[in-house]
Amino acid sequence: MDEGQNNLVMCRELGRDYGGQTAVSSLSFSLARGEVLGFLGPNGAGKSTTMNMLSGCLAPSRGEVEICGIDLLASPAQAKAHIGYMPEHPPLYPELTVDEYLRFAARLRGLPRRRVKAAVETARERCGLADVGHRPIGQLSRGYQQRVGIAQAIVHEPALVILDEPTVGLDPNQVREIRALIQTLARDHGVILSTHILPEVAAVCSRVQIMVRGQLVFESPMAELGDAGEGGGRLKLHLSEQAEADPLAGLSGVSRVETLGPGQFRLHHAGNKELAPAVAQLAVDRGWSLYRLEPETRDLEQIFVSLTSGEEADAA
């Protein structure tokens, strides 16, 4: 993504070391308003370290982070004013009511007293908490407590909202409600979502990034996910048995041909949209029968497994 005025986050060559071990290395990306960025990776990949650096809770060993054009290291207070952060375990006070806690969060964020009441009402309404403002947080269900955690992150109307595992421990209905809430947040904010739940990324994110061993190894808009990854697009063919791989490999844009069986092939290509007509013409020219020609796409789970296979065991 090009740098521009719409970018809420600019991260350049960000890194973090713990002693002699590198947890995050040379991480660079940007986030625009209206985007929901899914951050994925196996255990120990560096996701939590990255979230802590982006939220200003942990200083990087090197690199730069800008939030709304403000250097997070040079001007932390000004930059953090544009950030809302909900960690995996929200810092809730069970003895406080929802309204008391949100007023407390608003004051911690530096909102003037004259604005606190309206800010609390807006955050409570957006997060579906309108009917529980008077109730102690400790008496709420886990799903409602997660909503309170998100409400405290947006009470000061930040440009950037960072959510770390927001649906962990929720039942399916609560998960759907939180996902719907995240999608509404994207209308006015940029959202970074760190999670282990692949369907969650597929359901709410507009872009996905995968980290392995502290490095960014994959990035793609969700709309282009099927053609993303090593080898670009793939085309599966079933031709008559006399068909040969070499003529197929000679087609423009084909990087590799897999032979799956007699007359059956998988063509790897770099997103060549004219490949299917070229294959059909080749079959006519060679006198091959063409029984099947279909594009193959990889879903997020397949891409994640191919990039991270073995990483969980290594981390353990």
Rank of each mutant, 00 (worst) to 15 (best):
H238S: 14
G44H: 08
R147A: 00
F218R: 01
R109K: 15
T259A: 12
C11E: 08
A316M: 13
R124G: 15
R12D: 14
R286H: 10
V204A: 06
P87A: 03
G138P: 06
L72W: 10
G84V: 09
R33Y: 04
G84C: 09
A280F: 05
P199F: 05
P42D: 00
I83S: 04
D246P: 03
V9L: 15
S289T: 14
D171W: 10
A276M: 14
G169W: 09
S28N: 11
E241C: 08
E177T: 05
S220H: 02
A23S: 13
I197S: 01
L8Q: 13
R266Q: 14
G15E: 08
L92W: 08
N272R: 12
A203N: 11
R142N: 04
E244A: 14
M86P: 04
S309E: 15
E311D: 02
P277Y: 11
K80L: 05
P199V: 05
S255K: 06
E311Q: 08
S252F: 02
I70S: 08
I70V: 15
Q145M: 03
N43V: 04
A59R: 14
N43P: 04
G110M: 05
V257Y: 06
F304C: 02
Q78W: 04
Q264R: 15
P94I: 12
A228C: 09
A280Y: 04
L92D: 08
L181A: 06
I182H: 01
V65E: 06
S61W: 01
A32Y: 01
L300P: 00
E274H: 11
G226L: 04
H89C: 05
I154F: 09
E224G: 09
N6Y: 04
E241A: 15
L290C: 11
L96V: 06
S206I: 02
M86D: 06
G138H: 08
Q78S: 14
G110K: 03
R286G: 06
S28I: 09
L290P: 13
E244L: 15
H196P: 00
V217H: 04
A249W: 07
G214Y: 06
R12L: 10
R286F: 11
E224C: 09
A32V: 06
A180S: 14
S26R: 15
D314K: 12
A180W: 02
V9F: 12
L37I: 02
A123T: 09
E121Y: 01
P166F: 06
S141N: 00
D188T: 13
S48L: 07
V201H: 00
